[in-house]
């Protein structure tokens, strides 16, 4: 699935598809059940964010390796309105929608590396990495 290009996120069914693809990649990368669950949950949050706040986007799923271990890198990209105040957006409970405001802050806790790049008016890219233990 890596190398198949990015997965589109344009409907609720796509959120389910993203979860399933991330699960498959996490199993193949040797993730424990708990780490699979965490990375799939983070992917679900970020995919829903792209759909709800940006009207859609895409995700690239990549298996990464360093000298010691394998991991998964997920790059969510959208061309939505962007996030004017990133720090605020990463606060638990902060939301401009009707959700709980846990999507960004919560998914950050579920992964090892979290990078958010947003340009107001242009879009948002969230890149997360989780390593197999």
């Amino acid at each position: 699935m890596t190398g198949d290009g990015p997965l589109p996120i344009v409907s609720n069914a796509d959120i389910v598809a993203v979860r399933q693809q991330v699960r498959t990649a996490a199993v193949e990368s040797g993730f424990s059940l708990i780490d699979q669950t965490k990375v799939v949950t983070a992917a679900s949050e970020l995919a829903r964010n792209a759909l709800v706040y940006a009207g859609g986007g895409q995700v690239r799923i990549e298996v990464v390796e360093n000298a010691r271990r394998r991991g998964l890198r997920l790059e969510f990209h959208d061309e939505g309105p962007g996030i004017p105040d990133v720090e605020q957006a990463l606060t638990d409970g902060w939301t401009t929608g009707s959700g709980l405001g846990l999507g960004l802050s919560g998914s950050r806790r579920l992964v090892d590396e979290f990078d958010l790049d947003s340009v107001p008016g242009k879009g948002t890219t969230v890149t997360v990495t989780k390593w197999a233990r």
């Binding site: 059940l33 708990i34 965490k38 949950t41 919560g106 806790r109 579920l110």
Partner: peptide
């Protein structure tokens, strides 16, 4: 509820 789900939910903040 599966244990992995419970652990993940609490870490998520719910």
């Amino acid at each position: 509820m599966r244990p992995a789900v419970a652990i993940t939910l609490v870490e998520l903040g719910l």
